[in-house]
């Protein structure tokens, strides 16, 4: 039996999600919603609506929300109320209150799957890093350093991504949230935060750079730089453990602008085992494929059919990262 699915928002992410859903044997995209009427012609054969509430009158099993941050929480709450399984793009809203409201609806809906699109967890380099940490091979994580930055692009200052009403937050909420999510996923819950949240270049009301220091109750420290002035795109995540380290460089995207995706790892070596102290023997894995979108949707399906209980990017994962975002904004 196919899972009758609708997509809200046929922008860049909506199109990517549709492509993935179309190749999945269990999902059937039957309807789309967009404010642009041109989308009706672009996707013939599907029910087209301009108002997302009209989707709820259709016979659906699931909804994929790729809408602006200001409306996404309302759509998610209503879809849960209507008994639908929900996949929603990150961020889960503009503020912590948004996701807390969603969680209340999720509890009331009882048993519906709600998953947020933190797709970076499904990148192979991140999966490798998680396996290394979980194996205990190099001992506990001591500290971490992450940089995620992009150039912004022409007219970013007028783009919805830096519109306070639509987005709620700048580069940190838009892209940096992935790095924050990974830090929580790989290390734990950060309770202390120090930050600078700056507008250094783009003349917009929201931040184009965030510099963050965070600490867990176990004393693990992480440093994050989220930037919209990284003129050469960059993804870098280094994790230092008691007996070794892991470094992810690059992240595969369709344009490959963040470079090849690699993970480098090594056991620490002191003078007693190597002459080249400070230059340990490293292993490097290069990843040639990004299957994160497919893997993410496979997991959404596994949760719907009961094979898996809790998705990656659960509402609780989303709540934790939004709590962190609010602390960073408050401290900056």
């Amino acid at each position: 039996m196919s899972i009758r699915t609708a997509i809200v928002g046929m922008g860049k992410m909506g199109k990517i999600r549709k492509q993935i859903l179309d190749t999945h044997p269990a999902f059937e995209v039957v309807a789309i919603c967009d404010r642009e009427r041109g989308m009706k012609e672009a996707f013939p054969g599907l029910t087209f609506v301009e108002q997302w509430r009209d989707l709820l009158d259709l016979r659906l099993d699931a909804i994929v929300v790729c809408a602006y941050n200001n409306v996404a929480p309302d759509i998610v709450c209503s879809a849960l109320d209507a008994g639908l399984h929900v996949f929603c793009e990150k961020p889960p809203g503009r503020c912590l209150a948004d996701i807390e409201r969603v969680i209340a609806h999720e509890k009331a809906a009882g048993g519906r799957v709600l998953k947020y699109g933190f797709n970076h967890r499904f990148h192979y380099a991140v999966m490798e890093a998680k396996a290394i940490i979980d194996s205990g091979r190099y001992g506990p994580v001591l500290c971490a350093r992450g940089t995620y930055g992009k150039a912004g692009g022409l007219g970013l200052e007028k783009n919805w991504r830096l519109d306070k009403e639509l987005a709620g937050g700048g580069i940190l909420l838009d892209q940096g949230i992935h790095m924050l999510d990974l830090m929580c996923y790989l290390i734990g819950d950060f309770t202390q935060v120090k930050s600078f949240v700056e507008n250094l270049y783009w003349k917009a009301p929201l931040e184009d750079n965030a510099f963050v220091l965070m600490k867990t109750d176990n004393g693990q420290v992480a440093m994050v730089h989220s930037s919209a002035t990284q003129w050469k795109h960059k993804f870098s995540l280094e994790l230092f453990m008691a007996d070794g380290y892991v470094s992810i460089n690059g992240i595969l995207t369709s344009t490959r602008s963040y470079g090849d995706e690699t993970i480098t790892f090594a056991r620490k070596q002191f003078e007693d085992v190597t002459f080249a102290f400070g230059h340990p023997r490293e292993e490097i894995i290069y990843f040639d494929r990004d299957d994160s979108w497919e893997q993410e949707m496979n997991e959404f399906y596994a949760c719907i059919n009961g094979e898996k209980k809790r998705p990656q990017g659960s509402s609780e994962d989303a709540r934790k990262v939004m709590e962190l975002v609010e602390k960073i904004y408050a401290a900056g």
Binding site: R281, I284, Y286
Partner: peptide, 8 residues
């Protein structure tokens, strides 16, 4: 697929 490098 993946590729791998390790020099010892």
């Amino acid at each position: 697929m993946i590729r791998y490098e390790y020099m010892d």
